[in-house]
Design a protein around this nucleic acid. Sequence first.
DNA 1: TCTCCTCTGCAAAAAAAATTGCAATTCGTT
DNA 2: AACGAATTGCAATTTTTTTTGCAGAGGAGA
Lengths: 295, 295
Amino acid sequence: MERQSEIPQLLGDLISRNSTKLTEADTRLLDVMMRDPIRAAMENGKAVSFRAGVHPASAVRLARRLGFKGYPEFRTFLQANLIEGGGDFESPAVRMAARLVRAEDGGVLSSVLDSEIAALQQVRNAVSDADVRGFSEVLRDCRRVFVFGRGHSVALASLIALRLNRSGYPAVDLASQMHLIAEALVTLGSGDVVWLLAFRKSSPLIHQIRKIAAERGAKVLALTDLLSARIDPAPDRQISVSRGEAGESQSLVVPMTIANAVILDLAAIDGGRSLHALSGFKTFRADCGLSPVIL
Amino acid sequence: MERQSEIPQLLGDLISRNSTKLTEADTRLLDVMMRDPIRAAMENGKAVSFRAGVHPASAVRLARRLGFKGYPEFRTFLQANLIEGGGDFESPAVRMAARLVRAEDGGVLSSVLDSEIAALQQVRNAVSDADVRGFSEVLRDCRRVFVFGRGHSVALASLIALRLNRSGYPAVDLASQMHLIAEALVTLGSGDVVWLLAFRKSSPLIHQIRKIAAERGAKVLALTDLLSARIDPAPDRQISVSRGEAGESQSLVVPMTIANAVILDLAAIDGGRSLHALSGFKTFRADCGLSPVIL
DNA sequence: TCTCCTCTGCAAAAAAAATTGCAATTCGTT
DNA sequence: AACGAATTGCAATTTTTTTTGCAGAGGAGA
C-alpha cells in the first residue's frame, strides 16, 4: 500500500480535510464512529449505519467522499489507524504511565482532560442537589437577574445571562454593561436577584455590589471558589467549590457545569416556563425576519 | 442466546477445551489469531486463513468445531472478547445508559456531571495532541488573533481572547466588537489568524468571515462540532468534536477544555513568551496604580 | 496391502455486504 | 412561490464472503 502515506493519520484529520463536503448523514456516521472507533473498525457498514440511524448507502457514500474506493477500504483505514496507534487498546493505567514518560512533549491534551475530569468528580462531594435547588428556586421566584463576574468569569457571566434570557428569565450581564453599571444597579429592588461569580481573584466590586443588593433587599446568589468565598454579608445562597490544587483545573469548567445544572434544574421546577420560552426562542429565530446574521 | 454462558471467556480457554479435536489447519489458524488477536477480530475469514496458509473453508470448520454457528459468530466472539478486555471501552455509552436508568435517584447535578465527564472522555478519541499542536503553532507564529463565535460561543470567544492577551498574544474578541467588525476585519492581513467557533447553529457570519480571511491571506482555525464542521474553504486547521447524543453535554465544557489545552500547549512551545507575559500581567495588575475595580 | 476414517482443498452455491440508479424530499435561491 | 441543486432512502444489482458437497490425500488398524 503505497498510498498509506497519503492517508491522513487520524479520523479527525480526515474529517477536517473534507469538512466542506460533509452532509448530515455523514456527520451522523462520523459521530458514532468517533464515539467508539474500535467498534466502528470491526463492524460492517450495515451495522454502523444502523447505529447512526442512516441508510447503509450513506456509509458507502461517506467512504467515497473521504477519498476511498469503497466502504471496505474505509474500514481498512480505520483498522490500520487503530492497530498502528495501538495505544487505544491499553488500559487507563497503562496509558497514564505512558503519558508520564513522554510527559513534557506530548500529552498536553490528556493532562488537561484528566485534570478537568478529576475536578468534576470532586464536585460530587462538594456540592449537593439541595444547593443546586436552592439556586434554581431563588431564580424561579425572582423578577430580574443581574449576573456579575470579573476576569475569566466575565465569559461565564455572559453565558449565564444568555441562557437565562433564553429560558425566559430577564437577565443582565453586568460585566458587559460596566459603563452603565450604576444605572443598572440603581433600579435594583426586592424582587431582583444578583448572581455573583468569583474565582481566584475577587474584585472589590463584588463586595460593593453585594452591599448595594443588601441595602435594596435584592437576593444574592454566589458561585465561588473557597478563596473567594468570604462575602459580607453572606449571600442568600452560596455554592463554593474547592479551587483546584496546584496543577489542577483552574478553568471555568467546574463553575460552568454547576451553572448548567442550576439552569437545567430551573427548567425542571418552573412548570414549563423555561421550556416554553426556549421553544419560543427557537421559532422566533426562524420567523423573526431579522437576518440570521445577528443571531 | 443461552449458549452465551457456555462460551469460554477467552480464546486460550477455548483452545484448551477443544484441544483434542483440533486439526493441523485449526492450529495454524489459531496460531495467527493468537499472535495478533486484534487483527484477527477485524479481518474476515478469508484474510485470516490466507495468513495462516490454509483454505477459507478451514476457518469455517474451525469455528464450527469450537461450537459456533459459523465464522461470523466466531469473529463476533473474538471482538467481544477484545472489547471486554479493554475495559475502557464499554465506558461512555454504557455508563450513560446506566445513568439514564437510575436517572431520578441521583439529581440533576450528578446527571450533568456524568454527562460532562463522558463528553470529556470522548475527546480522547476525537482529538489528538497533534491537532492541539497544530493550533498552537499557528498561534505562536501569528501577529494578531481574531476570535469569533456567536450564540453560546460568544462566552468562549471572550474567554479565549482574554487568555491569549494575557499570554502576550494580541487577540480581539470580534463578538464584543460587532459594531466595529468591519473596521476590524478590514485590517486583516497575512500575518493574522482568525479563530472560529461554531456549535449547533453556525451563523452565516462565520462563512463570511472565513471568506474574507481567505481573500486576505489570513490563517483560519476552526473549533467546531460535527454539525457545524462545514466551512468553505476548509480552515487551515480544524478540530471537530462529536456533538453529544441527546442528553449528553451540549455545553461549552468540551470546546473550552480544548481551548485551554491549546493555550497551555502554546506556552510550552513559545520559548517563554506566554510565561513572561503572564508574570508581566501579574505585576502590572499589582503596580499599575489603577483601581483594582477595573481589573 | 487393503479398508476405513478423517482432513484438506477445490469449486459451486448460498448468504451477506456493498454499490448504484432512481424517485422523493429538503434545502437555499431566484 | 417556484425552481434547481443536493441529499436521502429504497430497491435492484453487483461484488464479496461464507458455506457446503465432493473428491483426493494421508494414515491407522485389520
